[in-house]
Amino acid sequence: MTAVSVQGVRKVFNAGRNDEVVALSDVDLTVESGQFVSLIGPSGCGKSTLLRLIADLTAPTAGSVTVAGKPARRARLDQEYGIAFQQAGLFDWRTVRRNVELPLELRKIPRQRRRERADEMLALVGLSDFAAHYPAQLSGGMQQRVAIARALAVHPKLLLMDEPFGALDEMTRERLQAELLAVCAKTETSTVFVTHSIPEAVFLSDLVVVMSARPGRITDVIPVDLGPRTEATRQSAGFFTAVTKVRKALRGTPTAVTADT
């Protein structure tokens, strides 16, 4: 079964005005169930827009978006996905724990279960000691981790993440990448993940989708087959080959990989 299917999507902002922007044009994308797909491309190429289309937070100008076999709107109303935005977007009057509980609250999950789940997620992102703090008392990276915990808390079938690790240090980032993969594997989550980091995209993904700007298009889809990821994967030859492949695709050169890489 396909988790996400985007067909012939075009998105134009401010159509007909002099500040018209063609954010996406002719975008086709399929995410199979359980697949991890990364979107990578220069700033402004429409990655966030594509994610927001899948989440039905904005409507396509043309084309169709299907999530879990339903129209995107239906899928949103059925709360088929969890989402983490580029900005943490925490509610500053709620403690860290209550922020993570928010989506559970809206799903009417009983208080006790809610609390357990939130604590479990906070432990995962290494913030157990800050459960009773308020967001303003946290650093930017810590806030981002709370947002990740909040997105994971509902155990969604589809996870949409927009540069979630952007504000993190390298060590935390690598640890959370591994944790994320473990969670996704355990719960058979499909993931659409926006990133600017080529190694991150390669390490996490089954499929790296390379985009280019003006108008935003998908220029390349690169399958990455490195088997189950471990720390050793980051040093493997296959990893570097894939990184080079993605880098070349981003530069717009043909994706043929030569032996010297």
């Binding site: 949103r76 109303l77 928010l102 799903r107």
Partner: peptide
């Protein structure tokens, strides 16, 4: 971003009011 988050949770106007707008 806050409003979109509530939208992503399929929260209608009333619940967005209670959980987001009033506290804010």
């Amino acid at each position: 971003a806050g409003v979109e988050l509530m939208r992503s949770y399929a929260a209608g106007w009333w619940r967005t009011l209670l959980k987001l707008r009033l506290p804010a």
